[in-house]
């Protein structure tokens, strides 16, 4: 439903009223923004030394700072890409097991899936970080984050894939059976590719979730973007400015990934039409 259902196409009076309301709303917004700016100014947040290391290439700290942030971004992306790849592989395996396995086995898989779905990601990460080493699994910090993220996201992705497989028209598997394909072959060559394609937007959206959750790594001192920001803040004492930059990087990347999902979705439905 679009907005216009909630109100008529405005007539002259309605347009005038909307204009008045718009101006009033805009004035209030400008006023709030001005208050915020004044608050920042009176607290010395516009002081040059808080901003120039981040934005002025001539500042002595600029190169070091961006080398830190750049490396942090690389660590963030590495963790996200690894977690996404592993989650995809595991997610497909779980989905296929859930669909085709015998009943008791399937119940076991469902149980594990439900438990993993209920565990907060931060706990999955700390679980890996604190528990695995006591059993001799000493890994680089990166892997505790990847394992924690994968534990949760592989389960979510398996649900996405399963929904995709179940949504493939029945005629497809009937046709495959008629061709003499086995059940496994039908899954691999007929159902999975179609499910994967139709669920691509949802899978891309999951990448945003993973990207955001990598920042939990900061709590186990994995030097991703946020942790690097904290290191910068302890030297430069400019939390607001540094958080702003880090948040902007995250928002930009995630926004683009989100747009990609919408674009893929549009292309898919255009092809279907």
């Amino acid at each position: 439903m679009n907005r216009s259902v909630l109100y008529d196409a405005p007539g002259p009076r309605g347009r005038r009223r909307i204009l008045v309301a718009s101006v009033a709303a805009a004035l209030i917004l400008v006023g709030l923004a001005a208050l915020a700016v004044r608050r920042l100014a009176t607290n010395g947040q516009f002081a040059g030394e808080k901003w120039s290391p981040l934005f002025d290439p001539n500042d002595v700290n600029f190169p070091d700072l961006w080398r830190l942030l750049g490396g942090g971004l690389l660590h963030t992306l590495t963790a996200a890409v690894l977690a996404m790849s592993l989650s995809l592989v595991l997610g497909v395996l779980i989905a296929m097991t859930r669909i085709s396995a015998s009943r008791w086995y399937r119940w076991a898989v469902v149980g594990v899936v439900e438990i993993l779905r209920g565990v907060p990601v931060v706990i999955a990460i700390f679980f890996a970080y604190q528990v695995l080493p006591t059993y001799g699994f000493r890994l680089p910090l990166l892997w505790y984050i990847v394992i924690g993220l994968t534990a949760y996201n592989s389960v979510v992705i398996s649900e996405i894939i399963r929904a995709g497989i179940l949504a493939v028209p029945r005629g497809q598997s009937d046709a495959a059976a008629a061709l003499g394909l086995t059940r496994g072959q039908t899954q691999r060559f007929i159902l999975l590719p179609q499910a994967f394609r139709s669920m691509l937007p949802a899978l891309i959206s999951q990448l945003v979730v993973i990207l955001k959750d990598t920042s939990i790594g900061a709590f186990i001192s994995y030097e991703e973007l946020l942790r690097r920001g904290l290191i910068i803040i302890q030297t430069l004492r400019n939390p607001i400015q540094t958080y702003l930059v880090i948040a902007a990087i995250f928002v930009l990347i995630n926004y683009l990934v989100g747009r990609l999902a919408i674009y893929v979705e549009a292309r898919l439905s255009a092809r279907r039409a």
């Binding site: 690894l82 680089p140 990166l142 001192s221 030097e223 942790r227």
Partner: peptide, 15 residues
Amino acid sequence: ALAGVIALVFSGCGG
């Protein structure tokens, strides 16, 4: 891309 990621991982991008 995968090779790149793996190279990154093993070049030790820990903390």
